[in-house]
Simulated assay, not measured.
Amino acid sequence: MKRRLGWYIFGLAIVILLTASGCLAGDNNPSNEQAIEAEWQSQDNAEEPSAEVYPPARPLVLGFSQLGSESDWREANTTSIKEAAEEAGIELLFENAEQSQEKQFEAIRSFIEKRVDVIAVAPVVHSGWDEILKEAKQAGIPVIITDRSIDIDDPSLYVTHIGADLYEEGVKAGKYLLDKMRDQQAPIGFVELRGTEGSSPSIQRGKGFQNTITGHDEYKLLDSEAADFTMEKGKQVMKGFLQEHGSEIRVLFAHNDDMALGAIEAIEEYGLRPGKDIVIISVDGTRKAFEKLVLGQINCVVECNPLLGPNVMQAVQELAAGRTLPKRIVSSESVFTEQMAEKEVGNRKY
């Protein structure tokens, strides 16, 4: 009896040892490893909080210095910026400089003080930006230049410029003129309504236009004067041109639609037919200008797209994500003539 009990205990011990060794061997079993990994993953997933558990991160903050509200184009540009910011969930600090570079400096300094994420500026004039942009760079705040360009010694002071190729707009206007008047008898006298003195559109559109017609001796510049991109000043200056040069004026190149619309009133009051007696070329592409195209009172509009808001907000988000932007982002634009106007006028959003 005692012998049987001894063999029973010995056999039970062997079973226990084999079972233990089997468990230890199972640690190296691939199927067991997968089971353990699945277990950890399930625990990780169970413990990971859903996105709703944490409050959303604070919105990006953009400080935007708009140069003014001098024209329908500018109003459309402002609306585009505000609507795009709201749609993108970006907090917008908006300041209207009312054509004052000093006010733009004040706005930028206030943005720096408030530690915004990005600063965007539509500059009043072309030069004088170096020092204020150095302040923004020292504060670690990236700067986007919109619409008009700037002239600075150190291009690294801003990350990108979003807007039209202003020089190319002048080139397009010049090419239209050469085509339109190719069979006309010389001399062909023309006048120019420039924008704000010292602004990049005034400088670059003028250069593009002049360089395109250079070498065509049949064209004679009779007068050129700044009219501040406004309808009232455009009418006033055009009235003076007509008093000085009268029927010598065969072409008007206006640097924006508002000045062209003012000039149309002056031409009609003088007793001439806009678009017929005087060919009118303008830049912008507002609905009011297209209506004059339909009537034949403007002959050509070179488009300058004001709807830059989506591009600006995308750039802000890209910067916040640490991505690099191209130094130049050019908006898509076209040239419209009288023949195209009726089809296009209904599509104008501004």
Rank of each mutant, 00 (worst) to 15 (best):
F111N: 01
I112C: 05
I112M: 06
I112Q: 01
E113H: 13
E113P: 09
R115Y: 08
V116G: 15
D117A: 02
V118A: 08
V118D: 05
A120S: 14
A120D: 07
A120Q: 09
A120M: 07
A120T: 07
V121C: 01
V121I: 07
V121R: 00
P123E: 12
P123C: 10
V124H: 12
V124E: 09
V125K: 15
H126C: 00
S127K: 15
S127R: 14
G128I: 01
G128N: 10
G128V: 05
D130C: 01
D130G: 07
E131N: 07
E131H: 06
L133K: 11
L133D: 11
L133R: 11
L133P: 10
K134C: 04
K134Q: 14
E135W: 04
E135M: 04
E135G: 05
A136E: 04
A136H: 06
A136R: 04
A136Y: 05
K137Y: 01
K137V: 00
Q138T: 09
A139I: 02
G140F: 10
G140S: 13
G140I: 10
G140W: 09
G140E: 08
I141A: 05
I141F: 07
V143G: 03
V143S: 03
V143R: 01
V143T: 07
I145V: 15
I145T: 13
T146S: 11
D147S: 14
D147C: 09
R148W: 05
I150E: 03
I150G: 06
D151F: 08
D151M: 04
D151I: 01
I152M: 08
D154T: 12
P155N: 12
P155R: 12
P155M: 06
P155K: 13
P155C: 08
S156Y: 11
S156W: 07
L157D: 05
Y158P: 08
V159C: 05
V159K: 07
V159S: 07
V159R: 06
T160C: 04
T160Q: 04
I162W: 09
G163F: 06
G163Y: 06
A164V: 01
D165V: 06
D165T: 08
L166T: 05
L166E: 06
Y167C: 00
Y167M: 00
Y167F: 07
E169Q: 14
E169M: 07
E169C: 02
G170C: 01
V171Y: 15
V171K: 14
K172N: 05
K172P: 00
K172Q: 07
A173K: 14
A173Q: 13
A173F: 14
K175C: 09
K175S: 15
Y176K: 06
Y176S: 04
Y176W: 15
L177D: 02
L178W: 12
L178E: 10
D179G: 11
D179K: 10
D179S: 13
K180W: 13
K180V: 09
M181A: 11
M181C: 11
R182S: 14
D183M: 10
D183K: 12
D183Q: 10
Q184H: 15
Q184M: 12
Q185S: 10
A186E: 08
A186F: 00
P187I: 07
P187G: 06
